[in-house]
Amino acid sequence: MIDRQSPVPVYFQIEQYIEHLIEAEDLKEGDRIPSEKEFTEQFQVSRMTIRQAVMDLVSQGILIRLKGKGTFVSERKKIEKPLTGLNGFTQEMESRGLKPDSRLLDFKLSVPSKKIAAKLALDVGQNIFEIKRTRLADGLPMAIETSFIPSGLVPELTAEKANQSLYDYIEKECGLVIDHAEQTLEASIVTAREAKLLEVPKVSPVLLIERVSYLKSGEPFEFTKSLYRADRYKFIIRLPNA
């Protein structure tokens, strides 16, 4: 319970108490937690203190708030994504028995920035298709993905085709052979707009992946920036003994 003599802030002690209830399965996935009023009476603290504890757990993805219904223990099961092998989002979700989908946010022909031109080894004057999508699995937003592809490689690409599996389109319709990719992974924080698209609280943590994908010829064909929900993804890498 609450130790008012402890140097640990009261709101954080309440966070730990709620987490303990979840770990002990006194509160299970989908369970509604007590209301602010109930917690206030239980701990004899202000509603502001309770709200701070609850919102911290919401921002970590441990709890989820549903407007007009209350606050619930969120589903903690994460998708395990190996950092080996090259698959598109569609293939990844289908391999796990999930239904992939996309919401096309932007599709345009544009002039690449210096960074993107360098990533794709483009000369001055070469344009790119810029495709921004929210990627979903079983209807739940999982990631925001922005892809940059040289327009010369896929001149007949349309918004409709771009909102499907790009890898399938490139290999099956364009006859190109995808070979490998190089990518980086780092932690980041969502902007207000990104939080809305991913349906997560503001300043929620995300996993940022930047990837350059190459054809069998060695030519880079795609530069992608993806923001994955940290509460839904776990990345795994196998480390052989050197």
Rank of each mutant, 00 (worst) to 15 (best):
I2C: 05
I2Y: 04
I2H: 00
V8Y: 14
P9L: 14
V10E: 02
V10A: 03
Y11G: 06
Q13H: 11
Q13G: 08
Q13L: 06
I14C: 05
I14H: 02
Q16H: 09
Y17F: 15
E19Q: 12
H20P: 02
L21Y: 01
E23F: 09
A24I: 07
L27M: 11
E29G: 04
E29V: 11
E29T: 11
G30K: 09
I33W: 14
S35P: 14
K37R: 15
K37M: 12
F43N: 03
Q44V: 13
Q44D: 15
M48W: 02
M48K: 01
A53W: 05
A53Q: 05
A53L: 06
M55T: 09
L57F: 00
L57A: 01
L57D: 02
S59T: 11
L63C: 08
R65M: 03
L66V: 15
G68M: 13
G70K: 11
F72H: 06
F72A: 00
V73L: 10
E75S: 13
R76G: 08
R76D: 08
T84N: 10
G85E: 03
L86F: 11
N87V: 04
F89M: 06
T90G: 03
T90Y: 15
Q91M: 09
E92T: 08
E94C: 05
S95F: 06
R96K: 08
L98K: 11
K99H: 12
K99V: 12
K99T: 12
D101S: 10
R103Q: 09
L104A: 05
L104T: 04
L104H: 05
L105E: 14
F107G: 08
K108Q: 11
L109M: 10
L109V: 11
S113F: 08
K115Q: 13
K115H: 10
L122V: 05
V124N: 08
Q126V: 13
Q126G: 03
N127R: 13
E130G: 07
E130Y: 12
I131E: 01
T134F: 05
A137G: 12
L140Y: 11
A143M: 05
A143Y: 01
E145V: 12
T146D: 14
S147H: 00
S147F: 04
F148G: 02
I149L: 15
S151H: 15
G152A: 06
G152D: 07
L153S: 11
L153A: 08
L153E: 11
V154W: 00
E156F: 10
L157T: 01
A159P: 15
E160Y: 01
E160C: 04
N163S: 14
L166N: 02
D168H: 13
D168F: 10
D168Y: 07
Y169Q: 06
E171L: 03
C174G: 08
C174W: 06
H180R: 15
E186F: 03
A187V: 11
S188I: 02
I189W: 13
A192H: 13
R193N: 15
L197D: 01
L198W: 01
E199N: 07
E199R: 13
P201E: 00
V203Y: 07
S204M: 04
L208F: 10
I209A: 06
R211Q: 12
R211K: 12
V212E: 02
Y214R: 13
G218H: 12
E219I: 12
P220H: 00
P220E: 04
E222M: 15
K225S: 07
S226R: 00
S226C: 09
A230L: 08
D231C: 02
R232N: 03
R232I: 00
K234T: 09
K234L: 07
K234C: 11
P240G: 04
